[in-house]
Nucleic acid binder design. Structure first.
Lengths: 239, 239
DNA sequence: TAGTGGTCTAGACCACAGC
DNA sequence: CTGTGGTCTAGACCACTAC
């Protein structure tokens, strides 16, 4: 048997497409039992590893659920899970062909309050690094970035020139792998934020609060405020 | 050799963890060449299929890039891609232990304007289904859902009782697989939205606009407006 | 006991890139 | 040519579930 035909679709992909198509057509209702690996092996005349790969990938994509000793089931698609890509703002602006420009309003060491210390995993009364940077897109303020950083995670943070690189980019270099929790909400800016962004205090803002952890150590806590009229987050559902 | 030890970590997972740890420690800088499959086979004493699976999964997670004939490289992690899960609102409210209640303000057939017809893939001058539903969480308005639906995708849409189920849930049953684009922004509500949500016209709102396609056919276009003070989207970064 | 998924192997053929 | 990843196979052992 040809194991890797030249211009043909890979067998595992054929199996996957067949199942995906059936799911799209509603052939298996959510929660319903789907064909077993053995049945697919017989149906497609391929080896078990091949159908296993197809099923494993469908599971990773959230389209099926698999239970050892039981079977494969069509997934409940109630949760509409999607991928939201948040690029580094400087890169995003430059990709649009605009000019990025950052104003550094604050870059210093501060004593951490109790809540902040807890959030960054510091001892009470410890110190944190604090930056306040406003990012401009072709001269227009687009984001006010108020960020606290765990000194243990980025000891040289205060020495970085954030008109040349962004805090996000720098922290990605220092601590390459992330886990983070986000929240996204709409609210009014603080008086300071309104002034820095050049907007009215009644202007709706898109606020992203992000807490980042790397290798178990809290790295940074950031509040990113964008004028609602100038910034939109875009995403797309996973296929 | 034991091929599937009882309580041990699976070999492919050990390989994966080893590489993940190295990436987290900055052992390979972004873009740098990582060990080849053959080297990992020799290092771990496992078969090639095993290391291949580990590398394929790392690729799927966006941690490495692979080029046939060239090698495996540490990924550029500039784009911070995260997973945002948007659950069905009724389910979300009930999961919190609150009571969901929907008011249907509009459920009818309408002529589609040019822009709307184009967005839903209809002929100019076609008709669309239009619903306006306000979702309440324990009596408090939480979301104003203004939705247009392609009649071809859900012919019975106008007959559904949306106090019993949600449009989202119903459409998921009719058209199980989705692709969608959406945008998230902060803005003021329209006069009608402010009235329906019981908020002032100056109150910031989190607005999600979502366009959904199933099997190549546009299904629905929805504008979901939430009072900023009552609703927050939460997400987490993929590890 | 029979059926399910979870995983591993040893070897194979292929396509592609670089020299 | 060599080395890389992309893929498939045929069979195997295991763990789990259900009967």
């Amino acid at each position: 048997m040809d194991t890797a035909s030249p211009r043909a679709v890979a067998p595992y992909a054929r199996v996957k497409e067949h199942l995906k198509g059936g799911l799209a057509a509603g052939r298996w209702r959510p929660g319903e039992l789907m064909p077993s690996e053995a049945e697919l092996v017989a149906h497609f005349g391929v080896s078990r590893m091949t159908v296993n790969r197809a099923l494993r990938e469908l599971q990773a994509e959230g389209l099926v659920e698999r239970l050892q000793g039981v079977g494969t089931f069509a997934a409940q698609l109630n949760r509409v899970s999607s991928t939201l890509t948040i690029r580094d703002l400087q890169e995003e602006i430059e990709a649009r062909g605009h000019r990025h420009h950052a104003e550094v309003h604050l870059q210093r060491r501060e004593p951490a309050g109790a809540a902040l210390a807890a959030s960054l995993g510091l001892a009470a009364g410890g110190t944190v690094f604090h930056t306040l940077v406003v990012h401009h897109d072709g001269g227009v303020p687009l984001q006010c970035e108020d960020r606290y950083v765990n000194p243990a995670a980025a000891p040289d943070y205060l020495g970085v020139d954030f008109t040349a690189t962004t805090p996000t980019r720098y922290l990605l270099e220092v601590a390459p792998l992330w886990e983070a929790q986000y929240s996204i909400e709409a609210s009014r800016p603080t008086a300071q934020e309104a002034k820095l962004l050049g907007i009215g205090r009644d202007e709706p803002c898109l606020v992203v609060v992000r807490r980042t952890v790397s290798r178990g150590t809290p790295i940074t806590l950031a509040r990113l405020v964008h004028p609602g009229s100038r910034y939109t987050l875009a995403g797309s559902f996973r296929p």
